[in-house]
Design a protein around this nucleic acid. Structure first.
Lengths: 255, 255
DNA sequence: TTGTATTTGTTCGTATGTATC
DNA sequence: GGATACATACGAACAAATACA
């Protein structure tokens, strides 16, 4: 009768919980190894099949990695953004998230990344950005193929400079989801020379703002650029929200 | 010798890929059912253990749900942000994220949530917010215990109003992580009557801004409030970044 | 409503290929 | 080269619980 819920506590769940808890508390740290499968069978009093199901789940979440035939047992892994990326891809490809949502989030995250980068910039990070600009400008001249890779790399370097891993991950995942989505609908947005030149100019302006410690400017630049890049791809109603995001930081909305 | 990599293509992967692909293409839609385990054994030419491992993985990413003993087979589920939430939680709890990082992100996400909520508000959402304000004000009077629950609920309702599931999820995870972290260090920040009253005032102001469609104001309010709430918990250097976030949207930094 | 058949959850025995000593 | 230990994988079997006639 009751629209019933909940998992009827399956055996393998105990092992999953044990490992998750252990990692969260710090009892298990990356590099540690779990006992072998047979040993786990003994310790947890469950069958091999259950142990294996638990290991598959843990592997899927990215917490452990069991090498094919390693007598030393499954390896505890350092957490990576990888599972998030996967889930987000599924979510976008199956309808829960559309392009407008992604652009919204990207404008938000990119702007914030620029802002904190300007606040936390170091000589080392600035050099990496300069080096990227160098390569970008080369590609614009020579017109080589993989421009978008360097393009995205710039954003990632900026996000890394801020030192906030969450901003980094959110931004990275969102960027990736967008290019996945766009490249599927609009085939290759980008070998246009004019577009490349504009992108380079934008990157240079952002770099200057960050180097000068002007986070507010860097943040505004990001939103303006993303707006003029993507706003034509969404509906009027959605575009209005994006415009608000630009104005939120005092930016001008190009018509 | 070689530090070898890669998965040696395990059997169950084929089934996992099949379902993922099917859902992505639209071949399988939520509400559909997969064949029974034994049927899958036949169709894919793999053992039942392998089929079950595949089902556990698919269950883990939220694509299917196999009810305990349902002869009709595993159910294809509508994608939810739940797996992202899980992964994010793991990442924040074990991945070098500190309080300052979390506060940064929360200021960013909360402000954005307010902004898009103001843009996409509906009568229904406004009513839910009003109802929450009602309850909040009751609690302030009577001084009942679980004030923080209703407090957080307000933020969540706002995030939901915007209609962007990503902002919703990111915000929720961040909020959750913060209260976990704070309640562990500072025991219960909140039965202070004065704090509760200020919170209520803040919520009312945000509600008014959203109802009026003034997203820029709502966003600024969020950052200012979070700054005055949390800034004393972080170092001077980190506080400077938070202050920049407030100024980014034209806010005043309370000294 | 009761019964029956089917399916899942689980374990066990066994075979195979591959590292390491 | 051989022995050992391990992970991968299959098939058979049981109990419990559900769906459906």
């Amino acid at each position: 009768m009751i629209p019933e819920e909940e998992a009827p506590d399956r055996r393998f769940q105990r092992l999953v919980d044990y490992v998750q808890q252990g990692v969260a508390v710090g009892d298990l740290t990356p590099g540690d190894r779990l006992p072998s499968e047979r040993e786990l069978v003994r310790q947890f009093g469950i069958g091999r099949a259950s142990v294996r199901e638990a290991l598959r789940v843990l592997e899927n979440v990215g917490l452990v990695k069991s090498q094919p035939r390693d007598p030393r047992g499954p390896l505890i892994q350092a957490p990576t953004p990888e599972p998030i990326r996967r889930s987000l891809t599924i979510l976008t490809s199956a309808g829960g998230v559309n392009l407008a949502h992604l652009i919204q989030v990207r404008m938000i995250m990119e702007a914030s990344a620029n802002l904190v980068a300007a606040a936390g910039r170091s000589q080392e990070h600035l050099l990496a950005l300069e080096e990227n600009l160098e390569r970008t400008s080369e590609r614009v001249e020579t017109g080589a193929g993989d421009f978008s890779v360097i393009d995205l790399e710039f954003d990632e370097l900026v996000a890394r400079s801020g030192g906030n891993p969450l901003i980094h991950v959110y931004g990275e995942v969102t960027r990736e989801a967008i290019v996945n989505l766009i490249e599927r609908t609009i085939q290759a947005a980008g070998d246009d020379k004019e577009v490349m030149r504009r992108t380079l100019d934008h990157h240079r302006a952002v770099y200057a703002a960050i180097a000068a410690g002007n986070g507010l400017l860097a943040s505004r630049l990001a939103r303006e650029a993303l707006y003029s890049h993507y706003s034509h791809l969404v509906s009027d109603r959605e575009r209005a929200v994006l415009a608000d995001l630009v104005r939120e930081c005092g930016g001008e909305v190009a018509t």
